[in-house]
């Protein structure tokens, strides 16, 4: 659980007094003092002080579940856009499909999207994805919307409370990628409603008491 000292926004170069906390993410040290290296909200978690960024690209972490889009096809793997600084690779051996002599294009074409997990990040920052796990699949139909990757944890909420509330109330199928890609399936009206709510969460991500406010909005617009 997150324990807020206070929801304080810090800027790069701003000194942070750790007060017995350990140095976590978003913090660097220089001649005995600690400073934030990005704009974000200062929080403590398990005796670590972290700066949770307010903006930025998606930086892949092992076992993240993300939504990728095929941008190119190599002889035995797909190259995918995962909205990070580097492309993701999905090898045919890491998928449930076995037809090795078949054209990869027939399985997944350029522009297709998949719900995959980050399997491995090599030293040279090659990102290998995998579809071999429960729930991972090619996404067919539905709508894709983009949110800021740094806001995804807020959309999920504590233990998934936020996203589950939205699913329950609207009945829209939601597949959330850690990289800020969201796949929605349902009637056009409801999908639009969910889209607006997600955009609202994205805008208000740095404020507290969000889940209750979202619940209220959902009840009102039911």
């Amino acid at each position: 659980m997150y324990l807020d000292i206070e929801r304080k926004i810090v800027l790069p170069g701003e000194e942070i007094s750790l007060e017995g906390m350990k140095q976590g993410n978003g913090i660097y040290h220089d001649s005995g003092k600690f400073y934030s290296y990005q704009m974000g909200v200062l929080q403590t978690y398990n005796s670590y002080a972290n700066v949770i960024p307010l903006s930025g690209k998606y930086y892949p972490v092992r076992n993240d579940r993300i939504i990728g889009k095929v941008i190119d096809i190599a002889p035995s793997f797909w190259i995918m856009d995962i909205r990070g600084p580097y492309p993701g690779f999905l090898h045919i051996n890491d998928t449930p499909w076995k037809n090795l002599d078949q054209d990869l294009n027939k399985i997944l074409g350029v522009g297709d999207t998949v719900f995959a997990k980050v399997n491995e990040i090599t030293e040279s920052r090659q990102i290998w994805l995998s579809l071999k796990d429960a729930g991972l699949r090619k996404l067919e139909g539905g709508h894709i919307i983009m949110v800021q990757p740094t806001k995804v944890s807020r959309i999920i909420g504590k233990g998934g409370s936020m996203v589950n509330t939205i699913k329950e109330v609207t009945g829209v199928k939601i597949q959330l990628g850690q990289n800020g890609v969201v796949w929605l399936d349902g009637s056009a009206e409801k999908v639009m409603k969910v889209r607006n709510i997600l955009k609202f969460i994205e805008k208000e991500a740095h404020t507290s008491g969000l889940t209750d406010r979202v619940k209220k909005i959902l009840e009102e617009n039911r």
């Binding site: 800027l11 978003g26 990005q38 307010l54 903006s55 690209k57």
Partner: peptide, 11 residues
């Protein structure tokens, strides 16, 4: 650069 969330020593 800060708005883009790029890690920096200072502005």
């Amino acid at each position: 650069l800060v708005d883009a969330g790029i890690p920096m020593k200072d502005m």
